[in-house]
């Protein structure tokens, strides 16, 4: 009897502790949420919305609204939605290309032995450690050279930006390769005996088996590109081509921070990844632990 009471109290305690932590952890999210629905443009430090209004959201989404103080029609000079679309576009295209390159490469490394393989693998992972931001001077020159030959590929273009992001592929080649090696070789051998061509094995056997990993890589690349701030801020100058991260930074530093609008924009920017996370949570746990942890 006493034991059961003790057990119960421990259970309640640990539940309460978790709840307490959860509230602390999620407070910033809640804080930004109520700030975005506040009509005044200041920081909200109350625990609920004081004067509810959608003006901040209208501002972010590019809808006209009437300023309650000055009675003027306000339209945002900042193309938040365009920035948002740019970011989504760049992040998903990059993720798709990285997937294409790294699955091909990982398959090549998984299936074949060839001259220099070991050194290629090792140099791949070690040179990858070079802080990509510091290679920017070189990449800047590279893109401006490329731009003189192919104008749509140079500085100030999305294609050029995506090209620079492909520098992150080596890390994902490793991740994919280590996931591939968990696939039993007997499956591949059976397929070979059945007379499958090399590319058919890759395309219709290995790829479907590695689906959880592919999802994880897509998400990881998407997040990295979506949240990157440095590279686009150096390569892109045209305000219409900016990504969300750089645009937000510009919006914040241009004005003496307008918290309400900033909060609304933050929620907008956080939304896509949170949604993707919720949908693919299962895959993520699987892929992250399997890809990174060596048993």
């Amino acid at each position: 009897m006493l034991n059961r009471i003790k057990k119960k109290s421990i259970a309640i305690c640990s539940n309460l502790i978790l709840l307490f932590f959860l509230l602390i952890v999620l407070y910033p999210v809640y804080f930004i949420m109520i700030t975005s629905f506040e009509s005044s443009d200041t920081l909200v430090i109350e625990f609920s919305v004081q004067n509810f209004s959608l003006d901040n959201w209208k501002y972010i989404l590019g809808i006209d609204y009437i300023n309650t103080v000055t009675q003027e029609v306000v339209r945002s000079p900042y193309p938040f939605i365009i920035w948002f679309k740019n970011s989504i576009k760049i992040a998903s295209i990059t993720a798709a290309i990285v997937l294409f390159i790294c699955t091909l490469a990982a398959y090549g490394l998984y299936r074949f032995t060839f001259f220099g393989k070991k050194y290629f693998l090792i140099s791949l992972i070690i040179l990858q450690m070079f802080p990509s931001m510091m290679g920017m001077v070189a990449l800047f020159l590279l893109l401006s050279k490329l731009g003189t030959f192919f104008p749509w590929f140079g500085l100030d273009t999305h294609a050029g930006l995506i090209l620079t992001y492909l520098g992150m592929t080596p890390f994902f080649i490793w991740l994919t390769k280590s996931y591939f090696s968990t696939i039993p070789k007997s499956i591949v051998e059976a397929a070979m005996i059945d007379g499958c061509k090399e590319f058919t094995i890759f395309y219709s056997i290995i790829l479907p088996l590695a689906l959880p990993m592919l999802v994880v890589i897509f998400i990881l690349v998407f997040i990295t590109v979506f949240s990157d701030f440095v590279i686009p801020s150096i390569l892109i100058k045209d305000p219409k081509l900016l990504t969300f991260a750089v645009g937000m930074r510009e919006f914040i530093s241009a004005y003496d921070i307008r918290w309400g609008k900033f909060a609304a924009a933050t929620i907008l920017g956080g939304l896509p990844i949170v949604i993707i996370f919720m949908i693919t949570q299962k895959f993520l746990v699987q892929g992250l632990t399997k890809g990174s942890v060596k048993e």
């Binding site: 091909l104 490469a105 090549g108 080596p170």
Partner: peptide, 8 residues
């Protein structure tokens, strides 16, 4: 193998 690795 180099075909698969070309892009990377």
């Amino acid at each position: 193998p180099y075909c698969y690795l070309f892009f990377s």
